[in-house]
């Protein structure tokens, strides 16, 4: 074994963060900073980093989360081990969970049922634990292009690392972030959340719906142009407004 304290394993649903046995938080943070600096090109924005719940305290997890967010990596605390990550001795007590594993986001695309709906009955106690954590856990990540006829339907927010093609649908209770071109139908805040928004690198959808409002693309195809900048659609003064953003 090498003398690394922090190890990052690639798994199907993202990266898994593992800590060496008995490592202190200070040492862990130092090494993560070094890794982030060394691999600044490797950790592309939108990468999902999973860490085991219980391997560090809540406060420490929160600090790590902030640290990763600074480099654009999504940090997520999972309650169970990601399939594919190998065992590595960690001395700290860890909650070995017998609960159902978090479904990989991709499976949600095929299934009509929403991911949280399936998880919720299995872990009711954990959902109430902390609202900040839940937001991270409940985001549905789709790591592929959504093609015509495919649909994501969830109560939580959605992150798509890929395009949303014409004929595809996303219906989300929260917001929708698309790291790619959006040409399909997107409905954010589908259960009445007026504060939900839609962000995409190129926002040219057939329809945008936010909460109970609908906006559609212009009828004249000449007016639809591929914008150079990411755009954000949200509700302002009772109508859907699209504005360019930096990210």
């Amino acid at each position: 074994m090498s003398d690394e304290i922090v190890r990052i394993k690639g798994t199907k649903s993202g990266l898994q963060l593992l800590f060496a046995a008995g490592a202190t938080y200070a040492a862990i943070e130092k090494e993560i900073r070094a890794k982030l600096r060394a691999g600044s090109g490797f950790f592309c924005r939108g990468t999902v980093m999973h860490a085991m719940e219980g391997s560090l305290s809540k406060d420490e997890m929160e600090k790590l989360k902030r640290l990763f967010h600074e480099s654009g990596v999504i940090f997520s605390v999972t309650r169970s081990r990601i399939p594919g990550a190998t065992e590595w001795p960690v001395e700290r007590p860890r909650r070995k969970s017998a609960r159902a594993q978090k479904r990989p986001a991709e499976a949600a695309v095929q299934a009509e049922a929403a991911v949280p709906a399936e998880n919720a009955p299995a872990e009711p106690a954990a959902v109430q634990a902390s609202s900040a954590d839940d937001e991270a856990v409940q985001m549905v990540v789709v790591n592929k292009t959504l093609r015509g006829g495919q649909e994501v339907r969830t109560k939580s927010s959605v992150l798509v690392c890929g395009n949303v093609n014409p004929g595809a649908q996303i219906i989300a209770g929260g917001s929708i972030d698309i790291r790619g071109t959006c040409r399909g139908l997107v409905h954010a805040g589908a259960f009445g959340n007026q504060k939900a928004f839609v962000v995409a690198d190129h926002l040219i959808p057939t329809q945008i719906r936010i909460a109970d409002l609908i906006a559609r693309s212009p009828d004249d195809p000449q007016q639809i142009e591929k914008t150079a900048r990411p755009e954000r659609a949200s509700i302002k003064d009772g109508q859907i407004v699209i504005e360019p953003i930096e990210r």
Binding site: R147, G148, G149, Q150, N165, P166, G167
Partner: peptide, 8 residues
């Protein structure tokens, strides 16, 4: 459009 569906 149909090709896209088929790829899916």
């Amino acid at each position: 459009r149909d090709a896209d569906k088929i790829i899916g």
